[in-house]
Design a protein around this nucleic acid. Structure first.
Lengths: 334, 334
DNA sequence: TTGAAAGCGCTAACAG
DNA sequence: CTGTTAGCGCTTTCAA
């Protein structure tokens, strides 16, 4: 697409000053007389001048772009994080540039390269993906602040912001134990893609093992992490382990899917079988069902990560790991 | 944030060729010997060179950015649209740049300006917001293809892609009538911000009036368009019009909130009172409740809009209005 | 308070 | 097959 626009010089000619004067007025630098300023602003308005930031950033070697790479915007939890980022970045004149990795490390490299070529001032990236060495080195060589979110085990980054996924799994396990459940199970999907779900599972299993209890696991990497999969996998679970009495699901969506199957089969929840999820999305609150889940402030994660960006850009130090709380939300499914 | 990087000239010097040769190899232009190509690729790898697209686009006067402005990424329907866009744009080497307007026309102007300053090749913008004249003229003067989504009444744009919101309201009204409901109501929020919800309401009311039936309306612009508001406003509605027998909600979230209140109060759904929503988000499917709603393929809207972008960039003509279907999904709430 | 010169990193257009 | 020249639109630096 060819472009052809009104430039700074056009504005300058229109007013009868040099382009430098216009540039200064528009950026609020130097001291320009009120009269000239007004003439320039009027001309900008009249000509419909829009500054060309490609040229501006190239020349000044500065940037107000913050690159962001997340798995998918179709999952609301990531959209909420971006909204959180925008809420702190925009007032400071910074803009997020979001790329989707689709949980694919190769796509992630592409997304990182694309964003880097736009010269971002900082980078916020999802941590729950096994990153390729190529991605790592791109980021490392680039040299801008890199904040990892949603995971807190990140290496080679300036700062990690997120919940302890292990702790989330532990909390559910402890809750199950306190409720007296004896035959717990785990239902998940695509664990090969999302290492954080795996960490929640580990925390869950660890606590159960500590109590001398085995965890029945059902997962199918070929299924998406959605309600329909929760339904299907719950069916498989019950066929395989009919005496199971409590299920920890990968996320809220799968839990709700599982619950709908259990209900259709006439299982009493939570008396015959209990269920818990992860994420505290609005999905967890439905008409009669209030899913027991672990809630994490996703908007807040975006805000915190962005505040780290601001600090690092000002050369202020930040905590290398910022753990945000995991909140056990008690519903009526356990 | 100051930047300082490996440039094309650095790569050229390292190999012992001119920067033009490197430029050509990297863009696959011209004919360069295999041997030189290999040396250059190796050097790029070794030095960790990342092209500077600010400089590239400035020089070539081309862009592969598609600007996108939507109300909020915290609402999954908009994230789904962006995912749809990326799915068709990325394979064609185009990248979306997303800004949030927060349903505020003034914020929208900001977002548009910010994106325009990055010289996008095309623009996709949410149509359900009363746009300021300033936004209009920015877009008009810019001259790139502008596609409006989610609304189909757009003016001054090249193409509009979305459902007929009026039809959505009509379909629910017709469905209510077919079911024999006589005292319908509408529950909404923030209608001052979202003119499309208003259009659904109009379609609904129009059909009801055609049947000689009045619609009881409850809306509060101060409340957010969420489940909790659905609960609160349903309470107000029932206090005010206890004999109401069917409610059309602004969206699925509010409908589910309303249903949870109705259930808590012991109302039989749908025998005593029915409910329908709009959007067909996963929210509509819960454990026992399957909300009657209007489903629209949001991912598909993003894809279609992006295909229009591609056509317009190739100077191919596009339909000025592309209406995507509204699908009545029958649940167990009507 | 204003402006001239130089250059950011890249590519179009042409030469060789 | 490879290189030279001349900018893209802006900002930095320094001079007036």
């Amino acid at each position: 697409m060819k472009l052809s626009k009104v430039t700074l010089v056009d504005v300058a000619n229109h007013v009868g000053v040099s382009s430098m004067t216009v540039s200064k007025v528009l950026r609020g630098r130097g001291s320009i007389s009120e009269k000239t300023q007004k003439k320039i602003r009027d001309a900008v308005q009249e000509l419909g001048y829009v500054p060309n930031k490609l040229a501006g950033s190239l020349s000044s070697r500065t940037s107000n772009l913050v690159g962001v790479v997340l798995p998918s915007l179709s999952d609301v939890i990531f959209g909420e994080m971006v909204s959180g980022m925008n809420s702190v970045l925009r007032p400071r004149g910074l803009t997020t540039f979001v790329g989707e990795s689709l949980y694919d490390p190769n796509v992630e490299v592409e997304a990182i390269s694309t964003i880097l070529s736009l010269q971002p001032a900082a980078f916020i990236i999802y941590g729950g993906l096994e990153r390729l060495e190529q991605s790592r080195s791109l980021l490392r060589n680039w040299g801008c602040p890199v904040i990892e979110i949603w995971d807190i085990k990140g290496q080679g980054v300036d700062c990690s912001v997120g919940p302890s996924h292990c702790e989330a799994g532990q909390k559910i396990a402890e809750h199950f134990l306190a409720r007296g459940f004896q035959r717990p199970a785990y239902v998940g999907a695509e664990l090969n893609k999302d290492i954080l779900a795996g960490r929640r599972l580990s925390g869950f299993v660890e606590v159960m093992h500590g109590a001398g209890i085995e965890v029945k696991q059902v997962h199918d990497d070929a299924l998406p992490r959605q309600a329909a999969s929760g339904r299907e996998l719950t069916k498989r679970l019950i066929e395989d382990a009919p005496d199971c009495d409590a299920i920890f699901y990968l996320n809220d969506a799968m839990a709700m899917g599982g619950l709908s199957w259990l209900h259709a089969q006439g299982f009493e929840v939570p008396d015959r079988i209990a269920a818990a999820g992860f994420n505290g999305t609005s999905l967890a609150q439905s008409v009669r069902t209030h899913l027991t889940t672990i809630d994490v402030d996703r908007f807040g994660v975006g805000q915190t990560a962005s505040n780290c960006v601001l600090s690092l850009m000002d050369d202020k130090p930040v905590e290398p790991v910022i753990t945000v709380p995991t909140n056990l939300v008690l519903g009526n499914t356990t």
